[in-house]
Design a protein around this nucleic acid. Structure first.
Lengths: 355, 355
DNA sequence: CAGCGGATGGAGAGCGCTCTCCTTGCTGGG
DNA sequence: CCCAGCAAGGAGAGCGCTCTCCATCCGCTG
């Protein structure tokens, strides 16, 4: 239905997609009026209104996005930029990245805000210097109105580049070096403190250790600091800590290392994926979870549910954070004069079987 | 560097981004010539060439995508459409989907072709009828030049809608109902046969069972049929088969069910995620893998490597398939008259520890 | 009854680019 | 020496839309 030009139209060509002009002609009004009706801007005589929509239906008209963008200077597209330091021509990174449920939750949160606004999400992966510059170029060309940036490594120069290029952007995760740019972040230290309190007070553990993320990552640092601080408050100044890199394998390695060194009865792991690895090693060592070792993860990713026993973890309200970042970006795009701002989200403890 | 208008320019305004006209003026040539230089079309005097690029550098010019799209009718964007039957306002689906490494490999393959061509990837999730219609509308508006479609459920009406709307599209995975549309697919039956032969001949197993995917999914059917056929060739007409739904949990359930009914020494699981679940149940049942039960998965996803023992599996050349689909789409966009075509990829067996 | 402000529709000027024509200048063959 | 033939740059017509001005018409108020 509504294919090609309708019945009684007078335009001879049947191949060219209908334009505003065509609709206007059929409705017997001016182009401007049709535009007003379609965009719901200004008052239009209700009768004309009906006539116009009818003509739209008959012609099967859809506005041409490019033409609209040309005059409005907006595209209705937002770029989701995933920034890593790795050059991913060989894609060792992409699968690692997607394997973590992190991404899906972010996309979901973003879409919950973007989609109702009719805004499209474009995917941009960025690694080496060249790809960064291409991204900036793309953005300046108007491929997107702004960018949501997911930085997976510390010391990422991208935020600075975006600021310099005058591109509207919001970071998910605080920038490593302060910059005049908007961001949302998690109170990582508070989350780690939640884990500490749970292991110490609720579970009554006294030989508590931690598996952390990479030391250069700000979020990692905060989790370590928050955990240590909270345990210190409980009179436990020393906390053994082994560093991982957020992967399943590194969780296994760290756990083996830990077990070889000392007995533990409580464990905080800086993300769920590593916790899953740790759980597997504990099982092989015939240590029961949570009886022998209580384990708390971080993120409340789907890995936490997939783990056996299911993982007690810190819930990172990623969907909310992503949604908020989208709102901030949209606001910035609507009014570029807006000052950069930031919102910090509070994590919560989700108690399951492992602690 | 190259911020704002350079030093000696004569254009007074500093705020408006430079246009072709500005560059032309600075270079002392016509707009057409600058366009030719930038797009590398037709021969241009090498000297002018240099002058023009120089002017581009000085002004910091970047072409305006919208203006270009308006006249060329192309956007340089391709939509990656993920189609599910689920309405995902509450996003129960998104995380399930992303949790499977499937997606990352597809994106990687797509990007390997798209990125060098300067083509952007836009993400589109589609569930209920309304979102499908919106997608068609978006595509007709020229938000993207075409679509790569990832259908996660059988009987998806989307391919038909795309064909009707005259939108260039390529499916990853054969459509459930034949349609005049291009697609890439995997020889699922051949893959299952590979697994059967390996379990029967190489591992010498005789009590072989299978955990399949949902019966309505074409790929599932092919895997079951291929597996049965291959074992029948070895004189094993009967194969116990329990149905799962491609999730970790369903793999666990299916394995428990299987163990409660009969002794098995060889197992083929229709995807790696379910195989991981099955592995966990076998471990709990004190059955050694591969000594007591040999297990073969399907997909060679990162789950296959994360599993313990690592999973022998069927490699689904997803990256290649995605890359090919991108190539097909680009060809179709370049010449809309191209007839629909399809390419079937052959899977391979990847031997690891589990069989 | 004149005058005035608000509401509504039309005209038309671009937005920045590509691409088709046209002009110009050159080379080489007859 | 003349003109065909070609190469290379310039002119300018749109692409389809939005949005600012205007013109018009209505109902009021002084």
């Amino acid at each position: 239905m509504a294919l090609g030009s309708g019945g009684g139209g007078d335009s001879a060509t049947g191949s060219r997609p209908p334009t505003l002009e065509d609709v206007a002609q059929l409705a017997g009004v001016s182009r401007a009026t049709v535009s007003r009706v379609i965009n719901g801007i200004r008052n239009v005589n209700p009768e004309l209104h009906k006539v116009v929509w009818n003509a739209v239906g008959v012609t099967g008209y859809v506005p041409n996005r490019a033409a609209r963008s040309l005059v409005t200077g907006r595209t209705g597209t937002v770029a989701l930029v995933v920034s890593d330091s790795v050059r991913h021509d060989d894609d060792p990174f992409m699968s690692r990245f997607f394997a973590d449920p992190f991404f899906g939750r972010v996309v979901g949160g973003l879409l919950s805000v973007l989609r109702p606004g009719g805004v499209q999400l474009a995917l941009q992966f960025v690694g080496d210097r060249e790809s960064r510059e291409r991204l900036i170029g793309d953005l300046r060309q108007g491929r997107a109105d702004g960018a949501i940036v997911l930085s997976l490594h510390p010391q990422d120069g991208l935020p600075g580049m975006l600021v310099n290029a005058g591109i509207a952007a919001v970071l998910i995760g605080r920038p490593a070096t302060p910059a005049p740019i908007s961001y949302v972040d998690l109170a990582n230290d508070a989350g780690a403190a939640l884990a500490a309190d749970h292991l110490y007070a609720a579970c009554g553990r006294r030989r508590i250790a931690m598996i952390s993320g990479p030391a250069e990552v700000p979020a990692s640092q905060d989790r370590i600091a928050g955990f240590r601080r909270a345990l210190a408050r409980h009179g436990q100044p020393f906390v053994p800590c082994v560093e991982g890199n957020f992967t399943y394998d590194s969780g296994e390695r760290a756990m083996r290392h830990l077990l070889s060194e000392r007995a533990v009865d409580g464990l905080f792991v800086a993300n769920d994926l590593m916790a899953q690895g740790a759980l597997m090693v504990l099982r092989d060592a015939n240590l029961r979870v949570p009886q022998d070792v209580a384990v708390v993860g971080f993120d409340d990713s789907s890995a936490a549910l997939a783990a056996r026993p299911t993982l007690t973890t810190i819930r990172h309200p990623l969907e909310d954070m992503a949604a908020e970042s989208a709102r901030m970006l949209l606001a910035r795009v609507a009014d570029p004069a807006t000052d950069p701002s930031s919102v910090i989200f509070e994590p919560t403890l989700v108690v399951r079987q492992s602690a």
